[in-house]
């Protein structure tokens, strides 16, 4: 029973990883760039959500979209000022620039919010549902539900809309997309906006799940999002969705299987990453990303 209990926690945790990883993988898809500052966008989203709730007392269903819009705009700003102007001919330059953004965002957050944990307000009144020996909190259901809903909306957006199709075209080839009439720069910008909005949502959900947020939380999620992206296959959105859930489940299983005094959750997560890199570098659901 405790395993089943943990599985539910794992799905909740994993769904937030998925949201982060989808953003990573979208950006990797269109630019071939590892957007290192993606975790900091999540952190920014968590704090934005916190202050929206604290100052305005708005309910979650308004706070969440507002936060997504705000982090979406943050993503646009990052792309426009720190990535777009950089020449792509210098291989490491864009990556280094995103690392610079990471440090800037983190230190700004420390200056503004202090370098310690801040309690995330209760966005919803927590109810506990009991099914026999099984207890599920309304928090976890809500987090999982919101994450899955966002993923479905995103999936529809990418699969069925004109902009989504253009994003896939740009991910295959900037040259071809341009020859088809796609404004490649604009689509790249939109991709950053969408990815950052998802990271912002993940930030709020993480705040609700863990009750405490810090300016340092970005790195953990940036790295785990990276693991999930590798797990799902670079540039593969559905892979990222499933990969997040797998990592979440794997982490909580490790908590169940290994005595909790030794906290090996992260050893587990990054051990998985190294194993994937060794045995299946294209990811579990690998679409190989062609370099042109």
């Amino acid at each position: 029973m405790i395993l089943f209990q943990q599985l539910i926690n794992g799905l909740m945790l994993g769904a937030t990883y998925s949201l982060v990883a989808i953003g990573y993988t979208l950006i990797f898809g269109v630019l071939g760039l590892l957007h290192f500052a993606h975790g900091e966008v999540l952190m920014a989203g968590a704090f934005m959500g916190l202050y929206i709730i604290l100052w305005s007392g708005l309910p979650l269903y308004i706070t969440l979209p507002l936060t997504m819009i705000a982090t979406g705009i943050l993503g646009l700003i990052v792309q426009f000022f720190a990535i777009r102007p950089i020449k792509k001919d210098y291989h490491l330059a864009p990556l280094l620039s995103t690392i610079g953004v990471t440090i800037i965002l983190q230190h700004l957050a420390i200056k503004i919010f202090g370098g310690y944990g801040t309690r995330f307000p209760d966005a919803i009144s927590t109810k506990i549902y009991k099914f026999g020996a099984l207890t599920i909190s309304s928090d976890s259901l809500l987090i999982f539900g919101i994450a899955v809903m966002l993923m479905l909306v995103l999936y529809f957006f990418i699969a069925k809309t004109k902009v989504g199709r253009a994003m896939r075209a740009v991910a295959e080839s900037h040259l071809t997309a341009g020859f088809l009439g796609v404004n490649v720069d604009r689509i790249v910008l939109i991709t950053f906006g969408v990815a950052s909005a998802l990271a912002g949502a993940a930030g709020v959900l993480v705040g609700i799940a863990f009750h405490t947020i810090t300016p340092f939380m970005g790195l953990t999620f940036a790295l785990k999002g990276l693991v999930v992206m590798l797990l799902g296959g670079l540039g593969n959105v559905v892979g990222a969705m499933i990969g997040g859930l797998i990592l979440g489940l794997a982490e909580v299983s490790s908590v169940v299987l290994i005595p909790s005094e030794i906290n090996l959750q992260d050893v587990f997560a990054f051990g998985i990453m190294i194993l994937i890199l060794i045995f299946k570098p294209e990811g579990l659901f690998g679409t190989r990303v062609s370099k042109r």
Binding site: R165, R168, A169, E172, S173, L175, T176, F179, T287
Partner: peptide, 10 residues
Amino acid sequence: EEGRGILSRM
């Protein structure tokens, strides 16, 4: 374009 430029994942 040369090499056709097919969007192969579509």
